[in-house]
Amino acid sequence: MQCDYAVRLDRVSRHFGDVHAVDDVTFDIYDGEFFTMLGPSGSGKTTCLRLIAGFDQPTRGRIFLHGQDVSGKPPYERDVNTVFQDYALFPHMNVADNVGYGLMIRKVPKPERMRRVREMLDLVQLSGFEQRKPSQLSGGQRQRVALARALINHPRVLLLDEPLGALDLKLRQQMQVELKAIQKKVGITFVFVTHDQEEALTMSDRIAVFNQGKVEQIGTPEEMYEKPATAFVAGFLGTSNLLSGEQARALTGSAGAIAIRPEKIRIFGADEGVAAGLQSACGVVRDSVYLGTYTRYLVELEGGGDLVVIEQNLDSRMRTRGERVKLAWHPEHLRRLG
């Protein structure tokens, strides 16, 4: 059956007693995209993933995979595979048997199984590790085995549950690039769960931000960063100055909540002129932190409220604490939040 989505969640809820882990969530994941579910711990993103995998069943709502209603079906009747946070490699099996497990279950003859295992290990750059036990591998290597073990079954959707969480920063950044490359190569829909906003921005085609069991906003990384729909999204993806009430009124004339990114604000001397088309406000530097490539200022506005401002260190002139400054920005960068 032809359809334009790989996964569809239709008004899905999962309640644990009084806790609404996932609360009336509806969205589509398109075929072939790298889709990230981003949110703090307890926001429902992992529960959502487990519902798609079939480890857990929704309290209400339906889940579709490629047009087929899979609600209520066990994991082994769903054409998805999972890379687990703790990798979940079988400790008593060597790498080859781990990777070939899905094929062994489907009774693929041994010669073909071995050939495809070699192919997969090649893809994740672990050729020659066939006979090792998981306990003899490093964290990064286990991660690759887990990936190979899932991908060898050619699932239509690959679910990844914070797979990079246990790796150190350098390895994590390397794996981000590699995962993205592997996804392009195999062309499978990736559904990725993380709480790391930078990871989400780096890898995703689209991001869904979760908060308290609900989806706050879905969009491309750029949309999410440049046009956050809610204060939560603005604060969770990168940093943002959030103002509301009287402080917002002083800048925009209305009391609705607003958000503006620190790097979108330019900083001038109090008496300097500002280009036409920019909005501006005056304030006093309360704090400055020199961070090498840029300097971060905390500016107290005359109309009330603080703004964090980031200025690239194009020249080495620092604003001093107590100095009066003028802040300016494009009106379009000042986001009114719903």
């Binding site: 082994y76 687990f84 703790d86 979940a88 490699l89 079988f90 899905g102 279950i105």
Partner: peptide
């Protein structure tokens, strides 16, 4: 690890 049995089911067993 609880995920061992889940991994096995996930892989079709």
């Amino acid at each position: 690890s609880k995920s061992l049995t889940e991994a096995s089911m996930d892989l079709g067993a």
